[in-house]
Nucleic acid binder design. Structure first.
Lengths: 204, 204
DNA sequence: TTGCCATGTTAATCCGAGTAACATGAATGT
DNA sequence: ACATTCATGTTACTCGGATTAACATGGCAA
C-alpha cells in the first residue's frame, strides 16, 4: 500500500513542504496545517517532530544555511587561492544566493526571530562564512598585508555583500538605480575597498 | 469629562501604542487588541482607521522613516560640506539609528513585508537617503572626481552601513568579532572604500 | 432642531496554533 | 509466532487574536 499509518520520514517531508510553501507564497507566513496537509498527515502530526512553529522554521533555516555553505565552498575551490577574483566571486555567490532565496531572508537573518545555532552544533551557520574568511586570509598572505586582520576584513566584505543583497531584495536599488546591475556594483565596491586597503599598506 | 465616546485622535494614538508595544517586546508581533486597549478603545475600533494589521504596521514604519530622515538631515547640516567626515558621520548615524530601532527593523526593511511608499507620497522613504546622496555628491565635486556617479557611490556606502547594521542586530558581528566596535568598522570600511575610489581616479 | 455619518461598541465568526486522549503498527524480546 | 512497548499518527478539543456585522453615540451642518 502506498500510504501506511506511519509516514516514515515526516520530519524531512515537513521541512520540504514548509520550504515549498514559503517559496510559493514568498513569505514565511504559511500555516502549519498546510504543510501537514502537503505532507499527507493531520494538522497535529507536526508536533511530534517540532516543538512549535518556530522550531520548524529553524529547521528550514538550517537547510538554507547548508545550501549557502555548499555553493560558497564550491566557489572557493574553483578560484585561484589568494586571488582577489576569488573574494569577489564569493561575494557575488553570496549575493545571488540571498537574492534567489529572498522568501527565506527573514528566516535566515532577521533580527532575533530564530535563534542562531550554537557554534559546533548541527545548524552552525559559520561554515559558509569561513570559506569567505579563508579566501580573504589567503589574499592577505599573498599580498603580504601582515598588518590587517583577515577576519575583520572578511566581515566588512560580508557586510558589503549582505547590504547590497538586502537593498536589492527590498527593491531599494531598483528605486534609486533602475538600470543598475547589483553584481557589478558589488564587484566594484569590493574592488575599491581592496584597492583602498592596498593603498593604505603601500603608503602607510 | 476626560473620556468622550469619540477619541479624537485615535489613529495617531494607535500608531504610538503600537510603536510602544513593539519597542517593549522587541518584536512587531503585538496584538491589535493590546494596542487598542492601550489607546483606551475596544478591540474593533482600530479597523475604523486601518484596513488591517499590515496597514497599521505600515503607519508605524512611516514614523520610523520620518525619524531616520530627521537625524540624517540634521547630521548633514552639522558637518563641513564635501568632507569625507560628513559621509562617515552620516553612515554612522544611519547605523546607530537602525541598531537602536532594531525592533522596527523588520517593519522598515524586511523583504516585501510592507509595501514601500511610492515616491512623492507621504511615506516616501527617500528623503533620509538623499541627505546621503547630497553629501557624497559634494564630496565628488570637491575632489574633482567627475567620472564617478554620486548616486551609485551613495548606494554602495549605504549598503555598507546597512550590511553592518544587519549583522550587528543579528549578533553575527558579536559571534565572529566579539571585541569589535561596529562604528569603527564602518568608518574604516568607508575610508578604505573612498581611498580606493580616489586611488582609481589618480592612477586611472 | 433634525439627521447624517464618522467613529465607537458589543457580539459574533473564523482561522490557525497548540494540547489531550486515543489508535496503530514496527520493532523487540521471549 | 506472540505479546509488549513506544514512537508516531489521529481526532477532537481549547484558546487567542484578527476581522466583520449590527447597533450606538454625538459632533456638526442644513
Amino acid at each position: 500500500m502506498s500510504k501506511s499509518y506511519h509516514h516514515g520520514d515526516l520530519r524531512n517531508a515537513l521541512i520540504v513542504a514548509a520550504a515549498q510553501l514559503i517559496e510559493e507564497s514568498g513569505s514565511p507566513d504559511f500555516a502549519i496545517s498546510d504543510a501537514a496537509k502537503r505532507a499527507g498527515v493531520s494538522a497535529a502530526a507536526p508536533y511530534r517532530h517540532f516543538k512549535d512553529r518556530d522550531d520548524l522554521l529553524n529547521a528550514v533555516s538550517e537547510l538554507c544555511f547548508i545550501g549557502l555553505a555548499e555553493v560558497t565552498e564550491a566557489t572557493r575551490k574553483n578560484h585561484p587561492e589568494g586571488s582577489r577574483e576569488c573574494i569577489i566571486a564569493l561575494s557575488n555567490v553570496y549575493l545571488d544566493y540571498v537574492a534567489r532565496h529572498s522568501a527565506f531572508y527573514n528566516l535566515m537573518w532577521c533580527a532575533g526571530k530564530h535563534s542562531l545555532a550554537e557554534p559546533g552544533t548541527e545548524g552552525d551557520q559559520r561554515p559558509g562564512f569561513y570559506a569567505f574568511v579563508g579566501a580573504v586570509q589567503d589574499w592577505c598572505q599573498k599580498h603580504a598585508l601582515a598588518g590587517c586582520d583577515p577576519l575583520d576584513l572578511a566581515v566588512k566584505l560580508w557586510a558589503m555583500a549582505h547590504g547590497l543583497a538586502v537593498l536589492k531584495i527590498n527593491g531599494q536599488i531598483a528605486m534609486f538605480l533602475p538600470a543598475a546591475d547589483v553584481d557589478d556594483m558589488l564587484a566594484s565596491s569590493a574592488n575599491s575597498f581592496l584597492d583602498g586597503i592596498e593603498k593604505h599598506h603601500e603608503t602607510g
